[in-house]
């Protein structure tokens, strides 16, 4: 998938995933906010870089139509399992942090 398409798809995915939570990130540009969160997450947890790259691949494999379900499903599972991480003070399901990281790496 070309980078432009990936970014577009990812933006849609993350917006949809976030829409599952009644939340609006505190930034005018949600995409940039997600990217910033991803960068912060990777700075705090450099050991997650390989997981983020793998996540990037799995998102790409899911394709534009499957990305939404993929991220939302994993986010739900994370929350059920208590798999949450703290990024810039936000408590997020790890999958969402990985999605942000994938965006930052793209």
């Amino acid at each position: 998938m070309r980078r432009r398409h990936f970014l577009k798809a990812l933006a849609a995915v993350t917006a949809a995933a976030a829409a599952g939570l009644p939340v609006v990130f505190p930034a005018r540009d949600p995409l940039e906010a997600m990217r910033a969160l991803g960068r912060t997450y990777l700075e705090l947890h450099p050991e997650e870089a390989s997981a983020a790259r793998a996540w990037q691949v799995s998102l790409a494999e899911a394709g534009e139509t499957g990305m939404r379900g993929h991220t939302a499903r994993h986010a739900r599972l994370d929350l059920e399992d208590g798999e949450v991480v703290t990024v810039d003070g936000w408590v997020l399901p790890r999958s969402l942090a990985l999605t942000c990281s994938a965006l930052a790496l793209a």
Binding site: G20, L21, P22, V23, T86, D88, G89, W90
Partner: peptide, 8 residues
């Protein structure tokens, strides 16, 4: 589904 928490 009640919101996102952010630490001070």
């Amino acid at each position: 589904g009640l919101g996102l928490f952010q630490f001070d």
